[in-house]
Design a protein around this nucleic acid. Structure first.
Lengths: 338, 338
DNA sequence: CTGTTAGCGCTTTCAG
DNA sequence: CTGAAAGCGCTAACAG
């Protein structure tokens, strides 16, 4: 391997000083057009790329951002998170920035991640995480931080939220408009604010349409407990005719429980999900759901973080990303029997 | 924000020289036990972390590795790839190393990724990729590289392969042992060597059991074309009683086609997949499949790459990771009618 | 407009 | 065993 060229080598080849080369490469105004052209040509011809660390050390920014998920969410097996990551990656690549990925265990939230302490990254995006202490520590360190769908609503700092309430309202309303009065709700743990908000949207819809909220129709537990939750729902004395599952993964587990009970989704029981992950589209019948714009969540996070880092934007927005009802085949119109 | 401390600050606090602090922090032998202890204590108390870029610039390694997928594979929506990434992340985190993620478009394979040219990473792991030119260019640049399930078999350089032939043999054999003689094969594009090898394993099994290979039972197309492929198989004059799908995603699409034809998987038609992604476990009935140890693939890749980078291991292994048959509910025993 | 110089934070000789 | 000094590759301030 030919050792990679440094700015010094280019300077020598171009018969100018190092400083001049730097100016040419960085598009500084104080350099002659001809000199610049000549230098750029030589750099190009020799396949020169500046050393990232030299640059970062001097300029105090790394052109890199850190993306942190909770390890406990097993985010890479959950296409909801993976697709947010996809959006983040795309936007960073577009801006020729680097992405350092870290799946942080909850046990580490007593200290800052190494990439932050070592100053490897210019900012961080936290997805689905947000222990209050941890956030405070980041803020004290004053590293630009962007929260995406955080587990904790109370904090300053810029963040991106999903319009959970409206989405859940739409989902529930959709079922009601198809004649359902006995609509159940299943979700993961309500400690995750997104689920709590979806429950609220569900209740709002029932109330809005003058339907009683029945406690026994509301079940929440693990992230993937949809199977058991649905089974117990079906064993109710007066079982629901429809279920709103506050996340698609749970909805897909509901399919399994429903099928095993000898019933058919979209026929004997209607189902609406939330998130719109591929799993739902693939299911038979395809799942009606509330679409969350996951890639968008990622790319918007990057854009806002960039503003904060490089444009010194001081405003700490809270941005709410809208959702959309996607009608597929898991909802049937019925005539309410009451 | 209190400006982060540098090694200089620690030196001042400890009343020693910078060099001595460095030695203490890096566990060098040529330093007194007491001095070392004292320095470490002071560093600890003040929450000192060395600046990664200063360190990298001087020591010429970044403690970071780059992970590259093909953007065209949409790897983050495919749990097969995502889980390899999960394995890579886990092993890197264990070694306190950093992971830079890059989804490279095929169009970029004419040049080296920026993170490589800029010397941001000590090595790279390429997953599911491997344009020959691109690999050659990496080799010329002599950056340590590890290939995982590459699209190109012919190259030197260390690599990790999946035991596709054995797996496909086992899958097909499993169907044959359950009485099936009319076993079809569906897969994605055969240009991906993994699929070609799985086809080979399928053929080997048929031959081994003295069953004729029927051309019309072998279908391959897009990565997710399982729906159409299965539909056309079912319309054959003499349709198969079983299908071996060379990837689970296609198997799940097959479910959809089979259901729509009014047939039942595991009853009217048996199905075995390959990869073992969550989708298959969730399907009803649960999919019998060949498990690929995806996290393992990732962690082994990191371990071998680390050996090459830091231990100067010169040997370029080709490692073949075994697979395993996972029996679930999509295969039924039948009495062959021939 | 160009060159010189200092220094970002760190490790590593080399004297002492 | 410790300290002084050089230098990794780069940018920026300042002369000229």
């Amino acid at each position: 391997m030919k050792e990679p060229l440094t700015i010094k080598d280019i300077a020598k080849l171009a018969n100018v000083s190092q400083g001049t080369v730097s100016k040419a490469l960085n598009n500084r105004p104080d350099i002659g057009a001809k000199t610049k052209k000549m230098i750029l040509k030589i750099a190009e011809e020799n396949g020169y790329s500046p050393n990232a660390f030299g640059k970062a050390l001097r300029s105090q920014n790394s052109n890199t951002i850190g993306v942190i998920f909770r390890k406990e969410d097993i985010p890479l097996r959950n296409s909801f998170f993976s697709r947010i990551l996809e959006g983040i990656e795309g936007e960073l690549a577009f801006n020729r920035m680097n992405l350092v990925l870290y799946l942080m265990p909850d046990s580490e939230s007593k200290q800052l991640p190494e990439m932050v302490r070592e100053k490897r990254v210019d900012g961080v995006i936290l997805v689905g995480t947000g222990n209050a202490d941890f956030l405070k520590r980041l803020q004290q360190y004053s590293i630009p931080t962007m929260l995406v769908d955080p587990r904790q609503r109370m904090n300053d700092g810029p963040k991106l939220l999903i319009d959970n309430k409206s989405g859940a309202f739409m989902a529930t309303e959709h079922l009601i408009q198809h004649g359902h009065r006995k609509v159940a709700f299943i979700s993961g743990e309500l400690s995750r604010p997104s689920f709590a908000e979806r429950l609220q949207g569900y209740k709002n819809a029932l109330t809005h349409y003058d339907i009683d909220i029945r406690k026994q129709y509301i079940r929440h537990h693990g992230f993937e407990a949809g199977y058991e939750l649905t089974k117990s729902l079906l064993n109710e004395p007066d079982p629901p005719t429809a279920i709103f599952a506050a996340n698609d993964i749970n909805a897909v587990y509901a399919y399994k429980a429903i099928n095993e009970a000898g019933l058919q989704v979209g026929e004997d029981i209607s189902l609406v999900g939330f998130d719109d992950i591929d799993l739902g589209r693939l299911a038979t019948p395809a799942l009606t759901t509330i679409r969350v714009y996951k890639e968008e969540l990622g790319s918007v996070a990057v854009r806002q973080l960039r503003d904060i880092i490089y444009e010194d934007s001081e405003l700490h927005y809270t941005t709410i990303i809208p959702v959309k009802l996607i009608e597929r085949d898991s909802v049937k119109t019925i005539v309410p029997d009451s």
